[in-house]
Design a binder for these strands. Structure first.
Lengths: 207, 207, 207, 207
DNA sequence: TATGAATGAGATTTCATTCAT
DNA sequence: AATGAATGAAATCTCATTCAT
């Protein structure tokens, strides 16, 4: 067994608490997940929670941050793959399906968004993070258009937001509309968007 | 003051409670809106709430039902407008913007969906209602394509679900992406979908 | 269907409510049986209850009264049988087993007693009724001794109280000590009491 | 003021709560004694109650356990006294009067029994405890008979149950039949039982 | 730093009772 | 007399948070 320095041990505690919080909040919602449950799921007492966070709200912000880091990693993973022209599409599909697979990831995203809608406090910190990501995803969308010889949309970030929203929302839709179908819907929308975009070369046009 | 029969008076109480519940649940979320708040906002005692609903959960179902009735009315309103070929598009745009305008409507829709995700009890009743509406919206989408001389998509209901999801999700996005912008995104997606659809056989037409 | 006069109809309502109260209070205890349950079990609304009784407490007194009337009937039934010397014993056994059979009867008796212990209000009315019955049962006991040629105990009412207590308590003991066994215990006590009593005439003797 | 370790302090809290529960449940009955009352009587908040017991029901079981422990102690105290032949009777009388003195003890016993009658949950745990005690009391009864040169009854435990029932029931009878009288009744029953028992064969003997 | 007993505020729910119909 | 919606008080239980250890 490795000896951890005091700092490492503390960081580990914190991390375990955050991951437990993520699982429980995704599953049950922020209001319904209790501090006791979170602490216990992480293997600690309630006190440990309050040694690491000033209050229950603040773990949500931490969670938002981690969520964003992971979303960014997913997008960047897709971007990296999208070197060649042909497989740019495949990269985006891969990204969409990745998100789609993890329903609790979507539930957490929604939970964060609702919280932002309701708590101006939380909103302030959350929006800043969120904007960055929509921009990044917009960049991916723009690259995709370019790779396919299409004119990128005026505001790729807006389109990207639409996609993020669509993916999350479809995931939420749950078992009713099968997961595979919900993936197909996202792809259908994306393909339509690409197909209807004008070619990069100026002499062709389409409404 | 008008004298109400007992039945009318009871129906009024119930209605006031439901509307208060709708406002508070949209605003604060289901878990955070308390029965006391709801009852007081409606101008009654907590006991009155429990004379009208067996428990807190069940008001949500009632709410879902009313929500669906209203969504249906909105869609049917748009369908009615969409008589002429040209303004079919306008009808759908109108519908999208209608939904968009009412952020609390979207918040409620999400809240219902989350609850369905988390409570199998609730899910069972909710899904049944939801399916009907997606089918109805699908019909609207199909008519739109026909009106525009395009081949309707394989599964209009699936596309419709995508739109409902998109509209709600964009509304949730909140003040960050302005409401108008979020409306534009939805329309952009819709136009792309239509533009990329193959034409119906050219010699058929419908007004 | 017979038409009831207004008075008969009212008496019937009252009676139905009391019987429903008896069943529920025996089963669940006074505190746990609700007015709504009682009224509904009788086939009426809560309001009907309050048209017949000033409050929940007062139905208990009515119940006590009926309970006493029935106990008296049981005892008098046994007394009537106990004409001959030999079957005096059989009569008492019959009485003991009668009571024993009806567990809910015992539960009600205990419930009334507890209430008397706790509410001086109730106690006052209850004790008066109770005393009469212990005296009556004492008379039965005395007759039994005489019939068997034994000197009756100093205070037959005290002995009678002991038996009533024993019978109720054993019934309460529930399924653990089988009902038949609990009957045997009562009889064993009674026989011992008789056997150990001195003969009435000084020159006769029995072990 | 003595410093208590955490464990001691916790045990003390628990104990105070249980004793407060005992007092209030004896006095007012289980359904009528509130958790708030119990906690306050013990000098704690309601929350403290729920830190120590999962729910209101479970304090009753704890109470039953303690009740049994004390009953056992009383019986064993009497058994210890009953060394010599002569004072065996005195020991039992002492026991009967001990129980008799404490009316609230009897009320609690009845309350436990009623609960066992009504809640199968509670019954299961309670019966197990109860059986042990009736067996123990049976042993005391048997020893008593032997000490007095009488043949013990077939089933001393059944007779013991009868006595426990009698003692509790008489205590419940309350102020109406004076406490002293109720004590006399119990002793009268016991003496009758002994007197009517056949002698042991003279050549066997036991202290 | 971590523990977890205890707090206190508040949540859901129940229920005896009232009162307009 | 009977109804049952509504009241208001109170009951059980939960939970974020504190604090002595």
């Amino acid at each position: 067994m490795v000896r951890l320095t005091r700092e490492e041990s503390q960081a580990r505690t914190r991390s375990l608490l955050i991951e437990a919080a993520r699982a429980l909040i995704s599953e049950k919602g922020f209001a319904t997940a209790t501090v006791r449950d979170i602490a216990e799921a992480a293997g600690f007492s309630q006190g440990a929670f309050y040694s690491n966070f000033p209050d229950k709200d603040s773990v949500l912000l931490e969670l938002a941050e981690r969520h964003q880091i992971e979303e960014r990693a997913r997008i960047e993973g897709a971007l990296a793959t999208a070197g060649g022209a042909a497989d740019a599409m495949a990269a985006v599909e891969k990204w969409a399906l990745t998100l789609n697979a993890d329903r609790s990831f979507a539930a957490l995203a929604i939970e964060l968004q609702l919280q932002a809608l309701r708590s101006p406090e939380f909103a302030k910190a959350y929006r800043a993070l969120d904007r960055k990501h929509r921009a990044l995803l917009g960049e991916l969308i723009a690259r995709l258009f370019v790779a396919l010889g299409k004119r990128p949309p005026d505001d790729p970030a807006a389109i990207a937001t639409g996609f993020a929203v669509l993916v999350r929302g479809m995931a939420l839709q749950g078992g009713d509309t099968g997961a595979s179908e919900s993936g197909r819907v996202v792809i259908a929308f994306l393909k339509a968007l690409i197909a209807s975009a004008p070619d990069e070369t100026p002499n062709r046009q389409r409404g």
